[in-house]
Amino acid sequence: MSFLELDRVAKQFGAQTVVDDFSLTVGKGEFVSFLGPSGCGKTTTLQMIAGFLDPTRGAIRLEGHDLTVVQPAKRGLGIVFQSYALFPHMTAAENVAFGLEMRRVPRSECSERVRATLAMVGLAGYEERYPRRMSGGQQQRVALARALVIRPSVLLLDEPLSNLDAKLREEMQIELRQIQRNLGTTTILVTHDQNEAMSLSDRIVVMSQGRIEQIGTPQETYERPASAFVSQFLGKTNDFAATIDRTATPGQLIAGSWSAPAPAGLAGPVTVSIRPERIGFGDAGLAAKIVTRIFQGNHWLFQCESECGAVIVIRQNDGQPQPAEGEAVRLAWRPEDMSLRRAGGAA
């Protein structure tokens, strides 16, 4: 069931390829995030969907119809910009009403919808305010209301929360998620903030250098990163070299003094990837020494020097005593918590 479909979309500026071979299908009502560092092509992809840029190759289809031949003004998509892009010379209500005016919605219906939408984003009573007299969070809500009031087929959010402070951002994330669920609007979010992508989306598209690295649910991308890039980009991770010895039976995965039965498939030198919070201190395992110990409230962060290089360990602060700096420890983890890649990076 594909509602919005991007089929091998590419964008070139001169000789530079900014987006390449981008294929994605988005279901109706789905919330999809494009996640990646700046310059990875996520905003360019969004702008191609919006129609501000034309793809160099590939097709974009909405409910089976080619979207690229439609003028940006006729696409009927709602967009929230990073800068909010509110019309500074219009009040909140006038901002929200603009799209309805363009659609020649009758005045009575228009004012009713404006009022209802502003109320939905929690801005009842702010109709006559000008944007410059509103806080960042309020401006953000007006921008959201303006995009939603036209009942867009797809809502495009371009880093909408990046200008808000941390606390407000968290509140808005929850609210945004609720509104999106209630309305069932298909939504695409562009962000460089992995927490934002994780907490909001049904699926995440991780991008790097114009290419898709992985498409999956937040859990999949976090637990089973498809590439070194994904595992590095989504939270802290430890990568270190190990070998799989197929001469033994069953095959053994060996990293220093840690070993486990090898899974099927790979052989020879591999890269082990393991999240820091999945590593425990035990009696057996990888030999390491604690270099620094940092207290961070609800957890402890340990930087260790192990047989296989630097390793970060995060332990919940459960009130138990923790190893001190300089102490020799053994690091262990469950085989199912790690992911393995052939040495060299590719999955």
């Binding site: 967009i79 990073q82 800068s83 036209i150």
Partner: peptide, 27 residues
């Protein structure tokens, strides 16, 4: 001027002349 303001107007359905008269010129 913030160009995304104009993009916003276009995405809401404003044509060239409306865009100029209602958004660009006032700004």
């Amino acid at each position: 001027m913030d160009r995304s303001i104009e993009m916003a107007a276009v995405s809401l359905g404003a044509g060239d002349w409306t865009l100029f008269r209602r958004v660009t010129l006032p700004l």
